[in-house]
Simulated assay, not measured.
Amino acid sequence: MNKPQHSHFDQELDARMARFGLRVAAGLSEQSEQLPADIGERLRFAREQALLKARTARAAQPELQNAPSVVAVGASLAMRGGPADKSPRWLKLASLTPLLLLVLGLLLIQHSQWYQQIQAAAEVDTALLSKPLPPAAYSDPGFREYLNEEQE
């Protein structure tokens, strides 16, 4: 199965962001020893708040993974659902209903036209067999019109 190419770039971007975050955290930790106590206390509180927000973001992240996303497949785009994107079987079957109705409609139209052709041929045969015709009528190009005049 072909994986989208952009997932490699997403992983690389995540890795770079993680390295940057570690470097910033290390630099802040080194400088925090030289800060006054009140500023250190405010930073500790801000760090705890940031960690709390990060935990809630990580907890909400599986919900985002289950959301549908748009991925590049060749030269086109396609919708891809998450692992929990299992639609019910009846929904899949219901999506085939319009196609089934279309096919049934086309078959009904074909049958109707076939029946009309049989009826037209039967009318001509009935007219041929019920009326005495001269032999020249069979070779006449206006034979149908001759039959129509006789019926009127």
Rank of each mutant, 00 (worst) to 15 (best):
N2C: 05
K3N: 05
P4S: 10
P4H: 04
F9I: 04
D10L: 06
D10S: 08
Q11Y: 11
L13A: 14
R16H: 13
R16I: 12
A25S: 14
A26L: 11
A26Y: 11
S29A: 14
S32E: 07
D38G: 02
G40K: 09
E41A: 01
R44D: 00
R47H: 13
R47M: 11
E48T: 09
L52D: 14
K53Y: 12
A54K: 14
R58G: 09
R58S: 15
A59P: 00
E63G: 13
N66W: 06
A67D: 12
A67E: 13
V70D: 15
V71W: 11
A78I: 06
M79R: 03
P83N: 15
K86H: 14
K86D: 07
S87F: 13
L93E: 09
A94H: 07
L96R: 05
T97L: 10
L101C: 08
L102P: 00
L106H: 08
L108G: 10
I118T: 01
I118S: 01
I118L: 03
A120Q: 04
E123I: 06
D125G: 00
D125T: 03
L128P: 05
L129P: 00
L129S: 04
P132I: 12
P135A: 02
A137V: 12
A137T: 04
D140P: 03
G142W: 12
Y146R: 05
L147Q: 04
L147E: 07
N148F: 08
Q151D: 09
E152T: 05
